[in-house]
Design a protein around this nucleic acid. Sequence first.
DNA 1: ATTGACCCTCCAGCAGCTGGAAGCCCTATA
DNA 2: TATAGGGCTTCCAGCTGCTGGAGGGTCAAT
Lengths: 133, 133
Amino acid sequence: MNIGQVSDASGLPAKTIRYYEDIELVRPARGANGYRDFSERDVHKLAFLARARSLGFSIEECRTLLSLYEDRDRASADVKQVATEHLDRIARKIEELEAMRGSLQTLVTRCHGDDRPDCPILDDLAGEKTATA
Amino acid sequence: MNIGQVSDASGLPAKTIRYYEDIELVRPARGANGYRDFSERDVHKLAFLARARSLGFSIEECRTLLSLYEDRDRASADVKQVATEHLDRIARKIEELEAMRGSLQTLVTRCHGDDRPDCPILDDLAGEKTATA
DNA sequence: ATTGACCCTCCAGCAGCTGGAAGCCCTATA
DNA sequence: TATAGGGCTTCCAGCTGCTGGAGGGTCAAT
């Protein structure tokens, strides 16, 4: 299977697939013409990676998950730990973004947004005390 | 004012301040010894940047905000627009992360996490149909 | 004079791709 | 058989926003 078809099948851009080969997440065979020749197994791996990436796992986590996936003697606890840590990171990130959203929302609401220069958003950024009312 | 003091005053690492000079967000003067010599105005700018960055604005947005800040004839509508677009981006990012969290949470809950190999998380990543029950 | 804390520049690297150049290969059609 | 197009190859550079480190100058105090 050529890279273009694999790209279609896995949803990953060809460039990304080459990159994944580069960092040794996948090791496709090569045809006589030098083209990559992907097996079903390779395609399956790439789909696995695409899904894991879409859930936000880092490349290194993907590597770990993939090796656990291929290890018949794995303990599900190991998988769960990777996922749980990632879940915590996501939760922290959401909190961080919600804090930003809160502050920004307040400022945006207070800014009348017309052609005059006075602006609570800039006042806040400049560290000026802003009226709470 | 030397970079170390400015770092303390603005909360930005010295490295970051040098970087900001590099990309021309600030243009401190130079002393005879080659040291950067920051004015009050520079320090103020850097504090502005630190605050804007902490609200998640990109460097280029910061540049825009800074120039609006320094423009006495600005329209607050322009500021508001930058902030509103950023707010939308944050909201979209939060949604994305919440979707990830939702999926992951389900999988983690379903995984018993013991020393046996069967694992709904890996099943999902591998694209296998998982039991909904 | 020496010590130690500060400052300088420049280069490299992080994540995870993505774009582009230069060039080979394969297939179909005229 | 020549040619046109698409797909494939490699390699290098660049994106964001810093951060670390090497190698070296400067300053203030002892």
